[in-house]
Nucleic acid binder design. Structure first.
Lengths: 204, 204
DNA sequence: ATCACTACCTACCAGTAGGTAGGCAAATGA
DNA sequence: TCATTTGCCTACCTACTGGTAGGTAGTGAT
């Protein structure tokens, strides 16, 4: 009540927000319902009034995460640009998306690490259509001669790793770069670098 | 005794082996001392006879991991090769190292994700000297004109992400590629791809 | 033989996890 | 107005956590 009133967002949404933060920070096992409830300013049983169990809370959260991402990604994927410009557009959209939702990235990474552990949701099954259509696109560009020849599938894995890691391992990377936090400037710099790197590898 | 005798390795080493497997698979919080003890075929108190606490077990494990890696990496780094050949050599050594010790990779990734959470060990401080000397090397090659110009620091981050991810997120990636497990063939394919990709981006 | 030591055990501890039961007060709607 | 519903609470449950106490069988040295 006195802690974090915010009459705007419903308690349910506040719980989802706090759970997102906690799960991203300390993982599923490392987060207790008490932690989340305390963050919202209520007791654990009150939290369980809104979500029947810890697992269902996580499921709801993860579903929201996935649909948010798919929605935003599909917008940029559907754009009519073509050739390198399209790759650059999607790359930039991905960066913007990740920079906007760094907690999502860390949860995603944990999920990939655990191999869909706690959850019934098969992450790769959801992403596979996107992956496959990207493969088709790259293969086409390579046949065209627009892009240099690489193995599209491995290329996409490499890109996935390069981009996701920058956000998921942010604290570690920041220390390596002696540069604090995911500032807008740093994100921008890394985005430009990745785009330049991929352009150098793909274009003649 | 009847379960997993193996008179070769000491109980202590068996515990470290099992702990490595469990921590890599389910993380620090997701692993209980009972899990580890059961894997070895002893009771929890017996495990705590060999290690004073869960945390100290993890510390011992992590220190062994780090020293193993540093030892193997420094061998390839110290080699007198130069130019692109050196980059390729280190890249191949890194791949071989990761392929040999996939559980180490996953623990490392968890550690990077948590930002050195459970432990006093500062991972980035240990790796920073290597990182910095790699930066010096790349900067030199770029001044030479041996490599195309990129931002060395970001380049290394990109490479780190690209390689580590392939191993840390293996289960997820395998499903995406519709190809089971980290077979020697798959690791080899991806290694060749990454090397080809980096060569294309770095050499004219 | 006895002492000390190692490696294991059972039994227990306090603390915390997720989850349930039931009560109370404010809002809601007929 | 009065019943219902909503949102929160305290109190409690069982299961399991990391860790301790104390005991025992086997071993090797004196």
């Amino acid at each position: 009540m006195t802690d974090a009133p915010d009459p705007q967002r419903s308690t349910r949404d506040q719980i989802l927000d706090e759970a997102l933060k906690c799960f991203a920070e300390r993982g599923y096992d490392g987060t207790s319902l008490n932690d989340i409830a305390a963050g919202v300013g209520i007791r654990r049983p009150s939290l369980l009034h809104h979500f029947p169990s810890k697992e269902s809370l996580y499921e709801d959260l993860f579903e929201r995460l996935l649909s948010d991402w798919m929605q935003r990604l599909e917008a940029s994927i559907a754009s009519p640009v073509s050739g390198w410009d399209k790759a650059e557009l999607v790359l930039r959209a991905g960066f913007a998306l990740f920079a906007d939702t760094p907690d999502y990235v860390r949860i995603m990474r944990r999920e990939a690490l655990d191999g869909g552990g706690h959850l019934g949701i098969d992450l790769s099954a959801v992403l596979k259509p996107l992956f496959d259509s990207a493969v088709v696109y790259f293969d086409e560009q390579m046949r065209n001669g627009t892009f240099r020849t690489h193995d599209s599938r491995h290329l996409l894995i490499t890109g996935y790793g390069a981009i996701l890691t920058y956000f998921s391992d942010a604290p570690f990377i920041d220390e390596l770069l002696e540069d604090k936090a995911l500032t807008a400037q740093n994100v921008h710099d890394h985005c430009e670098h990745v785009i330049g790197f991929f352009r150098a590898a793909l274009l003649n």
